[in-house]
Design a protein around this nucleic acid. Structure first.
Length: 793
DNA sequence: AGCACGCCGACT
DNA sequence: GTCGGCGTGCTC
């Protein structure tokens, strides 16, 4: 007799463990490790995942129930992914099931429905059933309370059956198709068109899609006739969703590498040939041709019969990037990103699982792609915080990548023009192998960068958001027919409304943050919880009608620029790109129609590569400096360097202008000089002094609750628990209110733990987590434990 | 007494 | 997550 260890598909701390089931004789060949199975669980039937198969059990043998059936033909999880899930659950203080369901596409999660059907016809039950005019089967949810009450006795008596049905999130996609019957042909008379169409259909022995037939100019009338005469049958066929199907990709041959690229490539190939799990930090200035190195490395890995994973930040998953991969590797590429529906993602996932795609390109969660025999994992723009998931499990893609690389003995490449301090520090200590690319691939020179001091500008009478220097530079580009990219890190129209009499600013009633004015909707929006309010005609506080707007957002700047230059502008921010496909559409417009100005928030800082862009302007280089986070300087440096890198990437040389009120600040000053090394040293000195990462590891505890009281109680308790269990070398900061004290009517308090070496830490964290999960149920308290947080807020 | 409601523990 | 058991308290 064989038994299976099963993780059940329920998120609750007390079922966060293995449940054991019998494998019925008839299923013993069918059920393998990694399978999804249907199991009895109390009075219900639910979905679970087999994580182990063994011939002995620990639980009371008499109480072990059998698995009902397998839900797949092939297992959905490999042993490697199961092992990975266990590691992540442990490392990031998450439940096993939450990690498993993060690894798998959402389409595989089960949704349960309770159904009622009439069992024994005749008798009172049927009378009642028909009296309500119910179909053969009904979902309990759709019944009214009185209907349910009326049926209840029959459910108890067994005349009406109640059962739980599992449904998947997605169905296969079907398309109408035509199938030839190859019936002997009769006389077609004058029906030449039908004869022609029949010939066409009979060329395919399987089927032809109806859409294809119509594309060839045949009409549905002709089709109908053939169906009526019995030569053709209509059918539905399963089709694979391929969002890139209608596009043609030109083949893109490998480009010649320059000497720097060549060196980097050879270094990486050496590791690939040695089959070592080495981590490279590829530190290359913007435009140094990192992507070409990635592409050729992947090509080499594929030649060896292995597979490749390529991660990019969601925002950089632009059509430009995708096209480049499609053009180089054709159908061997699977692309996974947030723009795909559950079904589309599932199809791409299946393609990978079945070995139909050897290269996977995608955002964070693609690091879990079910590839086997991995040969290389690449993480582009490794400093991006989007690689860290913000809800549970709060994993970082680079950690997952390194774990997988050890399993497959393959290398990891972390690429960036502005590496995170953590990665660079590791490369200094020799944990990572650092490779530098100091020159641009095409122009060889970086754009010339200027800093404009906005306070000087103000004193000389220009109070506009555009300095004279920047205005002249833009005018010059318009005259030359070249393009400008402008970064304004703030969406909306004006920042907020303010009363000029009493200084009152309308705040969100649910969050401790001011409301942002959006002109298009003529409303005030909360960017945290989505709360919307009308624009105030008078002050809520003093009823004065002297209310005005302060601060300038993208929407407002677009207006200002239109007035100033009287030219075409493409605006890209959260508001204009929310709809599916808009991101791509706007960029296409910018490129194809050579629109003179692209104005946007941070989303334009990455990945754009347009030869005609020769000027980049940053309207407010300072905003990032003011975020309440110890990484503010690092983020500022990175953002400025990245956006500056959009200029002059090809034949035309580029120019960059940073507008700032802090011209002497080292993050801005060194970004202007493109001096990463000096920035690294200065910032490391600050981190050392303030005892922050990379000198210390961090764990952030955030407690939220409706009341301040409970938050304080809980954080104080956690503080005590930590003091008791960590060494005296660790530093515990807090409890203190989070930078945004309240979001969605929940107060938030935090504790930051800083440590270097705590052998028992994971154990302690799991204990605290368990304890507060219990409390959470009773007191509606929530505790988030963020291991290696990327934001301290 | 009879039942509605909410809390709590168990689920292999 | 969700079911059933059980205690509390309200109504007939």
């Amino acid at each position: 007799m064989m038994f299976a260890s099963v993780i059940v598909s329920i998120t609750a701390s007390d079922v966060n463990k293995v449940f054991e089931y019998k494998i019925p004789e008839g299923l013993s060949d069918l059920i393998k490790v990694g399978h999804r199975v249907l199991v009895p669980f109390g009075p219900r039937q639910i979905q679970g995942y087999v994580v182990d198969i063994k011939d002995e059990v620990e639980y009371d043998a008499a109480r072990i129930k059998p698995i009902i059936r397998a839900l797949d033909i092939r297992p959905v999880l490999t042993p490697e992914l199961i092992q990975l899930a266990g590691h992540l659950a442990d490392h990031y203080i998450a439940s096993y099931i939450s990690v498993i369901e993060t690894i798998l596409p959402a389409a595989l999660k089960s949704k349960s429905k309770k159904m009622l059907s009439l069992h024994s016809p005749g008798g009172e039950a049927e009378l009642a059933w028909q009296g309500m005019n119910l179909p053969h089967e009904v979902e309990v949810k759709t019944l009214s309370a009185s209907q349910l009450a009326a049926l209840k006795p029959y459910i108890t008596s067994g005349e009406v059956i109640e059962e739980t049905v599992l449904t998947q999130h997605t169905k296969k996609k079907y398309a109408r198709a035509l199938k030839p019957t190859f019936a002997p042909r009769g006389d077609f008379g004058r029906a030449y068109k039908q004869l022609e169409l029949l010939d066409f259909i009979e060329q395919h022995d399987e089927y032809v899609l109806l859409s294809e037939v119509l594309e060839h100019g045949y009409t549905s009338g002709t089709v109908n006739e053939l169906v009526k005469k019995g030569y053709v049958r209509r059918t539905d066929v399963v089709v694979e969703r391929d969002p890139y199907k209608s596009r043609v990709f030109e083949e893109d041959p490998p480009k010649e590498l320059n000497s720097e690229q060549e060196y980097a490539y050879n270094e990486i190939i050496r590791a690939v040939e040695e089959d070592t799990a080495e981590t490279f930090l590829l530190h290359g200035v913007t435009g140094s041709g990192k992507t070409e190195i990635y592409l050729q490395t992947i090509a080499h890995v594929l030649d060896k019969g292995r597979t490749a994973l390529m991660l990019v930040p969601e925002i950089a998953l632009t059509p430009q990037m995708v096209n480049r991969f499609k053009a180089r590797f054709g159908d061997e590429v699977a692309v996974l990103h947030s723009g795909l529906s559950h079904g589309e993602k599932y199809d791409e996932w299946l393609k990978v699982r079945n070995g139909g795609a050897k290269v996977v390109v995608g955002a964070r969660s693609s690091v879990f792609a079910p590839v086997e025999n991995l040969g290389i994992i690449i993480i582009d723009e490794e400093h991006e915080t989007t690689y860290k998931q913000q809800d549970r499990p709060m994993y970082h893609a680079a950690e997952v990548a390194k774990y997988r690389s050890r399993y497959y003995n393959c290398s990891v490449i972390l690429g960036s023009a502005t590496p995170s301090l953590e990665s660079y520090a590791r490369s200094e200590r020799g944990v990572y192998t650092r490779i530098e690319l100091n020159h641009r691939a095409v122009t060889r020179t970086l754009p010339e960068t200027k800093i404009v001091d906005m306070s000087v500008e103000h004193r000389s009478g220009n109070i506009s958001i555009v300095s004279d220097t920047l205005r002249e530079a833009i005018e010059e580009r318009i005259r030359l027919g070249e393009q400008t990219v402008l970064l304004l890190n703030r969406r909306g129209y004006a920042n907020f409304q303010i009363c000029q009499d009493c200084g009152h600013v309308p705040n969100c009633p649910n969050c401790d943050i001011s409301l942002t004015y959006h002109k298009a909707q003529y409303s005030l929006l909360c960017h945290y919880c989505g709360y919307e309010d009308g624009v105030k005609r008078e002050c809520d506080n003093c009823s004065s009608d002297e209310v005005t707007f302060r601060g300038t957002g993208t929407e407002k700047v677009e207006e200002i620029l239109r007035d100033m230059f009287n030219t075409g502008i493409v605006r890209m921010d959260n508001d204009t790109t929310r709809r599916k496909g808009m991101h791509e559409k706007l960029l296409d417009k910018f490129e194809q129609e050579k629109v003179p100005i692209l104005l946007g928030t941070q989303m334009i800082a990455k990945g754009l590569d347009y030869p005609n862009v020769t000027l980049v302007g940053v309207l407010n280089a300072d905003t990032m400096l003011n975020i309440p986070d110890f990484r503010a300087n690092e983020k500022t440096y990175q953002l400025l360097t990245q956006v500056a890198g959009r200029a002059g990437r090809h034949e035309l040389s580029g120019e960059v202008i940073f507008q700032t009120y802090n011209p002497g600040h080292y993050a801005i000053d060194l970004a202007q000089g493109n001096d990463y090394r000096t920035f690294y040293e200065k910032e490391m000195a600050f981190r050392r002094l303030a005892r922050y990462s990379p000198y210390y590891f961090h764990v952030l505890f955030t407690v939220s609750h409706e009341t301040v009281q409970k938050c304080l109680e809980a954080t104080t308790h956690i503080h005590q628990a930590l003091v008791k269990s960590v060494t005296d070398k660790a530093i515990i900061v807090g409890p203190s209110p989070s930078p945004i004290e309240r979001i969605n009517n929940q107060y938030r308090f935090q504790i930051l733990l800083k440590y270097k070496n705590e052998p028992n830490l994971l154990e302690v964290l799991h204990e605290i987590n368990l304890h507060y999960n219990e409390l959470y149920k009773k007191e509606k308290l929530s505790l988030k434990i963020d291991v290696d947080p990327k934001y301290i807020m």
